[in-house]
Write a protein that binds this DNA or RNA. Structure first.
Lengths: 224, 224
DNA sequence: CCACCGGCTGAACGCACGTTCAATATGCTA
DNA sequence: TAGCATATTGAACGTGCGTTCAGCCGGTGG
């Protein structure tokens, strides 16, 4: 609460932590974070109390940043490619993307909140798209939005996990290449589908109640 | 080598390691693995040399088991649902699934090999399905197979990471509930698509060369 | 001037972990 | 029986980590 000297020290540590966490994961040593920020490890404790508190503040700060970026880019968001479109700007804010991916990797509350936001956004986009007639309606819009979001983020997470970038700057290239490889099959699937007949879908619809059923352990339509 | 006394000790340790790794991840302490197996930590070192060697042997053993299970179930594998169908038997071999998911989570070579196998299987299944006329052809079958496999496995990984089971037996319930929630949107997407017009796909096809183009920035999934 | 207070440091503590080692028990071989 | 290899243990070592602590430095108030 003092002058800028205080704030800059805290901010430097926080940013260094975000970068280290994004690159090495949350097992990154506190001492290397401190070194990146040009301070001692003790000072980190003095300012944040513990490593967990530091991470919590990073979470909070990143969530705020993400919300701001979303608000700024909400005009450009187009239905149908919204999940990916946001990551197109990954080059400029690679640390954020890396941090979020690391959060997904260890299932932190930030990942849960981020994903829930993405699902909510997807619900809105698909609702608009369906209303505009460019997206086919679903029998369970919420389930579809969650399915599409989890598929997109999950496959990205898997790809980055299998090919981890050493330099955080490489993350942009990896994400971009992933999108390039995904775009054709995704568009094909979205416009032409995958199955030629309705048989499997119709059979499934005969077995389960059609309304949106958030269920925990319903008897699956085990074929065979 | 020797009598069953030797084998059982090694095997007990290996199985205990698989279980612990599946439940807690690969950071699980060697001492708790040893306790699960009813032996001392030193004996684990004596038999396996190091924790990494123990894990390598777990990897090897699981890959062999997976290959065997695949061979046994290959008759039941049906195109289009093959990725999921395999996991339907998750209740009986939850440790295997948990271990593989943990491997994906940290991007080990086992995960890479497992996924490459899954992609290869998907290529085969879709080829058969296309030949039989039940699956629509793709302009890049390899890319589609990889896309579908990464999406399925990635979303499952994400779901399990966000809702980690404490008891490995719960893993089956989580996977089953995930499949239940995914099945409708997946079947809808596979049979009815997502977009109502071909515009985005056609526009994309105008911009890129249509033949299968493996991007340069990404390490290509070079088969064998 | 002195006293104080917060930013800041380096050294040290304590813990959990992988690993090593000397010692003991249990066979098998000659 | 002696002798030797193997299975097994408990204690100890070394390390990396988060965290604690006593103290230094610089500015501010009295």
């Amino acid at each position: 609460m003092r002058a800028d000297a205080d704030l800059t020290a805290r901010a430097r540590i926080r940013d260094a932590a975000v970068n280290r966490f994004a690159v090495e994961g949350f097992g990154a040593p506190l001492r290397s974070i401190a070194k990146d920020a040009g301070v001692s490890a003790g000072l980190v404790m003095h300012h944040f109390g513990s490593k967990d508190k530091l991470r919590a503040e990073c979470d909070e700060h990143l969530l705020a940043t993400i919300r701001r970026l979303k608000r700024e880019n909400v005009a450009e968001a187009a239905a149908g490619q919204s999940f990916f479109h946001k990551f197109a700007a990954v080059e400029e804010n690679a640390p954020i993307v890396g941090y979020v991916l690391r959060s997904m990797q260890d299932g932190s509350p930030l990942a849960r909140e981020f994903i829930d936001h993405m699902v909510d956004d997807a619900v809105g986009y698909t609702r608009d798209g369906v209303a505009a007639g460019v997206i086919v309606p679903s029998r369970d819009e919420a389930a579809r939005a969650r399915y599409l979001t989890l598929s997109s983020l999950g496959s990205l997470l898997l790809e980055v996990t299998l090919n981890p970038p050493s330099d955080p700057h490489d993350l942009g290239a990896i994400v971009r290449s992933f999108l390039n490889n995904s775009y054709l099959p995704m568009l094909e699937l979205f416009t032409e589908g995958f199955l030629t007949s309705r048989r499997m879908l119709d059979e499934y619809l005969m077995y389960v109640p059609d309304p949106p059923s958030q269920d925990e352990a319903a008897p699956a339509p085990t074929p065979g």
